[in-house]
C-alpha cells in the first residue's frame, strides 16, 4: 500500500553565523549548506498494516510523511501510496489518504467543529451512509458533540485533537498518516483514539502509518515497526522482532529464602548478569543475551532457589530504541 524507494530529501539551508554580526553578514554573502533530511529510505508497508515509523527527533520522520502525503517532492527516489505517486498526483492521492499532524490543524480555524465536518463531507464527496456511519462512530468513541459550537481556535489542544483524528478518518481513507495523534490528550482520550484507529483498521482494512514519541500509542496500535535513524531505516519487522533485538533480557522471580544471599549467589554463578531487589521482595535478574541463554538462566534459578513465582517480562521498547538511536544495534 505504501512503497518508498530510495527516497531522498535535501534542503538548502542558509548558513549564518551566531549573533548580530552573523545575521548582518548574511546581507552580503549567503552561503547555503545542503541538509539531507532523508537519505535513501526504502520500505514497503502492505495494505491493512498498522505500522509505526519511529525515530529520534530530526530522524527525517516528518519529512518522509510529507513526501508520502504529497506535500513535498523528493529530491530523488520514488514513493507510491495506493498506487499513486503522491507529489505527482497530489489531488487524487489526497482523496485516498487521511492525515493528522499533531502540530497543525486541518480544521477551519474560525468555524465550529461540526462545520468543518460538513465542509469535508462536500470536499470529499462522502456518501450519506458513510458520513452518518462515521459520525456516529466518532460520537460514540470521541464524544464530538461535546465540543459544541465553539470555533476551533478557542478549543483546548485535547479537544481539538479529538476532532483532528476524526477529521482524518471521515472519508474512509485507504491510508491514514498519524503524526503524534495523541498529543495533549488525557489517558481516557488516548485510549479512545487508539480504539478508533484499531476499529477502522479492523473494519475497513485501513492502512495506518503512525509516528509518535508515545510508546503507548505504538504498542497499542502498531503491529509492524520501522525504525529510522539519521534518515535511514535501521530496523524493519514486527514489533516482536524489534523487541527481540534487545541485548539484555530480564527474569523476575520470588522464592523462599533471603534476598541478599540470593543476589550475591546470582552474581557469582551468572557472570555478567545483575540482580536487584524490586518491589514486593521479588528479584529482577538482567542478563546479556550474548552470554547466557534464557534456558541457562532459568535452569540456574531453579537449581539454586525454591522458586515460588517467576515472570519474564517483554523487553522494554524504550530501552531497545535507546540502544538503536545510540547506534549500538545495527539490524
Amino acid at each position: 500500500m505504501i512503497v518508498a524507494e530510495n527516497l531522498v530529501k535535501e534542503f538548502r539551508v542558509a548558513e549564518r553565523g551566531p549573533g548580530l554580526i552573523g545575521s548582518l553578514s548574511t546581507l552580503f554573502s549567503r552561503e547555503h549548506r545542503l541538509v539531507r533530511a532523508v537519505s535513501g529510505v526504502s520500505f514497503e508497508i502492505p495494505a491493512g498494516t498498522k505500522a509505526a515509523y519511529i525515530g529520534a527527533n530530526g530522524a527525517g520522520k516528518s519529512t518522509t510523511v510529507k513526501m508520502l502525503t504529497g506535500i513535498m517532492t523528493p529530491t530523488s527516489g520514488r514513493a507510491l501510496v495506493a498506487g499513486l505517486e503522491p507529489y505527482r498526483e497530489r489531488r487524487r492521492n489526497a482523496a485516498n489518504i487521511g492525515v493528522v499532524f499533531g502540530q497543525r490543524s486541518q480544521l477551519w480555524w474560525d468555524l465550529p467543529v461540526p462545520d468543518s465536518f460538513r465542509i469535508l463531507r462536500r470536499v470529499h464527496e462522502i456518501p450519506d451512509a458513510v458520513y452518518r456511519r462515521n459520525m456516529a462512530l466518532f460520537q460514540e468513541l470521541l464524544d464530538l458533540d461535546a465540543l459544541g459550537n465553539t470555533p476551533v481556535r478557542q478549543l483546548s489542544l485535547g479537544q481539538r485533537m479529538r476532532a483532528e483524528v476524526a477529521a482524518s478518518l471521515v472519508h474512509d481513507p485507504k491510508v491514514v498518516f498519524l503524526d503524534e495523534p495523541t498529543v495533549g490528550l488525557d489517558l481516557v482520550l488516548k485510549e479512545a483514539v487508539r480504539r478508533l484507529v484499531n476499529h477502522v483498521n479492523a473494519e475497513l482494512g485501513t492502512t495506518v502509518l503512525l509516528t509518535s514519541h508515545d510508546m503507548g500509542d505504538i504498542t497499542a496500535i502498531c503491529d509492524r515497526v520501522l525504525v529510522v535513524n539519521h534518515g535511514e531505516v535501521v530496523h524493519r519487522g514486527t514489533m516482536h522482532e524489534l523487541l527481540r533485538t534487545a541485548d539484555t533480557r530480564a527474569v523476575v522471580f520470588e522464592h523462599h529464602g533471603g534476598p541478599d544471599e540470593a543476589i550475591s549467589l546470582i552474581g557469582k554463578g551468572l557472570e555478567g548478569a545483575s540482580a536487584r531487589l524490586v518491589d514486593g521482595g521479588r528479584i529482577r535478574v538482567e542478563y546479556p543475551v550474548a552470554r547466557w541463554t534464557s534456558r541457562q538462566v532459568m535452569g540456574f534459578l531453579l537449581d539454586h532457589f525454591d522458586v515460588t513465582d517467576c515472570v519474564a517480562p517483554e523487553p522494554d521498547l524504550e530501552m531497545v530504541l535507546r540502544r538503536i538511536y545510540a547506534g549500538r544495534v545495527a539490524a
Binding site: 504529497g70 489531488r91 487524487r92 489526497a94 482523496a95 489518504i97 490543524s105 486541518q106 470529499h124
Partner: peptide
C-alpha cells in the same frame, strides 16, 4: 506559517 501543508492535503485545486 506552513499551513499550506494542510491545504495541500485536500483533494481540490
Amino acid at each position: 506559517r506552513g499551513d499550506i501543508a494542510v491545504s495541500l492535503l485536500r483533494p481540490v485545486s
